[in-house]
Write a protein that binds this DNA or RNA. Structure first.
Length: 172
DNA sequence: GTTGAGCGTT
């Protein structure tokens, strides 16, 4: 929608305005409830999501706030960026992504009713997965739910998908 | 109460 905005040199990759705000630099103790309390003053909110670490369940220090109207999102962004919450200066911007990532993108999950053996204990055959990633099969049988697809939106946004498990495990 | 850059799970 608003992407027809003119872009100039030096106008980097600013996120397109939208109803979704990304909130960064959060304290680990700031909750969705806290965020709602602050942001709802600017208008109707669809939902607030603090992104949690899958392993520990702790906040990863950022969140997404879905407004019902773009105008309210814009106002909230302008008013709240730089504001202090739980001792931390937060940064608020329009979100780049519009939704959470699809859980399992482009991975062959094996035949749904295949036996789980030692080699296949993950619920899918790992060898097949690797084989496929090097040279994908021509025939895809998406109808059977054998393949989980990366949805179009995400695909167009991300050049190379990196599984969260690898991306966020930084040696410790 | 990590010391802190970051764009996402069910």
């Amino acid at each position: 929608p608003m992407s027809s905005r003119k872009r100039h040199m030096g106008d980097r990759d600013l996120p397109d305005p939208s109803r979704v705000l990304g909130v960064f630099g959060l304290s680990l103790y700031t909750t969705e409830r806290d965020l709602h309390n602050v942001f709802h003053k600017f208008g109707g909110i669809e939902r607030v999501t603090v992104v949690l670490d899958a392993q520990t369940g702790r906040s990863r220090g950022f969140a997404f706030v879905y407004f019902e109207s773009y105008e309210d999102a814009k106002a909230a962004k302008e008013e709240c960026s730089g504001m202090e919450m739980d001792g931390r200066k937060i940064r608020v911007d329009f979100s780049i992504t519009q939704r959470a990532h699809t859980p399992t993108p482009g991975i062959y999950m094996g035949r749904p009713n295949a036996k789980r053996t030692t080699r296949n204990r993950y619920g899918y055959d790992r060898d097949r997965v690797e084989r496929r990633s090097r040279s994908p099969y021509g025939k895809r049988r998406d109808g059977g739910g054998h393949y989980e697809r990366h949805d179009r939106h995400e695909r167009s946004r991300s050049r190379s998908y990196t599984p969260p498990s690898r991306k966020y495990r930084r040696g410790y």
